[in-house]
């Protein structure tokens, strides 16, 4: 029973990271109507940015995270301006191929500058004690972060690492903030308006290009946070680190209904849980196959994803 809870918590943690990445995919799709396949590689850049800054002696962890976020935000905006903006109005296939090209470009620049050898990422929570769950007789559950258990011989039934815990908490906070931003601020409303009808949005006085830039900036900043959380949990980084989580997060976004923000959150979390549980109970080699199988089933049953809306084209 407790091992199930443990898998579940790990799944939630991984899923929260997927959700953060999926938000970037889904927001960009919702507003620019394009799949930014370079999004996964922005995670990788964020990981290296944090790794390099943390390796210096002067840089505290919090500053390394801020630097990673800034680097990714700037990178996302520059990519949009240089690679995608000139193609606005071009056929979707041209934009898609460009995105794949940007993805390879980022990977190869990383290969050149960082080499293909995996580097060890120092967790942002390195040295922090895990949370332990202890049953004391019939008393309620206790969480303790102490390394030396005051419960003596009592063995913890569940251990949650600080990284796992942080991934869940940070993701929840970010998703709440993002939801508030979208629904309560003028810029957020402008994003919703642009995602529905760019022409009508312009007639309201909304700067559509500015809104698209803002969307890329937010998506890339979220990718940087996801990068730090992910590399802390799975402490290794290579130039290809971003591609698989990127694809999984894309699956999560489609799963939840591409273009839908709550959909990306639900899709990401579900995907993480499915992946961890299938690793634990079915086969760790097959877990990716199962993830994609679930995607296929969901799309057969509900082609728009869990929360996706059918787009009615009015003539």
């Amino acid at each position: 029973m407790m091992s199930f809870v443990s898998y579940l918590v790990n799944g939630l943690s991984l899923g929260s990271i997927y959700a953060l990445i999926a938000l970037g995919y889904t927001m960009v799709y919702g507003i620019a109507k394009m799949l930014n396949f370079a999004h996964g590689d922005i995670i990788m850049v964020g990981g290296y940015a944090a790794l390099i800054t943390m390796a210096t002696t002067w840089c505290p962890v919090w500053l390394a995270i801020v630097i990673a976020v800034v680097v990714c935000t700037v990178l996302g905006v520059v990519i949009e301006k240089v690679a995608y903006k000139p193609l606005r109005g071009a056929p979707p296939l041209a934009v898609l191929i460009t995105a794949i090209g940007v993805s390879y470009l980022l990977q190869n620049v990383a290969l050149l500058t960082q080499t293909a050898n995996p580097k060890t990422f120092t967790s942002i929570a390195a040295g922090a004690p895990p949370f332990l769950l202890v049953f004391e007789g019939k008393a309620p559950l206790f969480f303790t972060a102490a390394a030396d258990s005051p419960y003596g011989d009592l063995k913890p039934v569940l251990t949650i690492s600080m990284e796992t815990f942080l991934a869940i908490v940070v993701s929840i906070v970010i998703m709440v903030l993002l939801t508030l931003f979208i629904n309560k601020t003028k810029a957020g409303k402008a994003m919703l308006a642009c995602s529905e009808d760019k022409g009508a949005a312009q007639l309201m006085g909304i700067n559509v290009n500015g809104t698209i830039t803002l969307t890329f900036a937010i998506g890339s900043a979220l990718a940087a946070v996801a990068a730090v959380l992910m590399c802390s949990t799975y402490p290794q980084i290579t130039p290809y680190t971003g591609s698989m989580p990127g694809i999984k997060a894309f699956v999560a976004a489609v799963f939840g209904g591409i273009g839908s923000i709550p959909g990306a959150m639900i899709g990401g979390v579900l995907l993480g849980v499915i992946e961890q549980l299938s690793k634990a109970y079915i086969s760790s080699q097959l877990s990716d196959a199962i993830v994609f199988l679930v995607l296929i089933i969901v799309l057969v049953v509900r082609p728009t994803g869990i929360l996706g809306r059918k787009i009615n084209e009015k003539v």
């Binding site: 409303k189 402008a190 919703l192 308006a193 529905e196 022409g199 009508a200 309201m204 909304i206």
Partner: peptide, 15 residues
């Protein structure tokens, strides 16, 4: 071309 998914009030505010 009203914003179908937004409320009447939100549409007016966007105006």
């Amino acid at each position: 071309r009203v914003f179908a998914q937004l409320s009447v009030y939100e549409n007016l505010m966007l105006g």
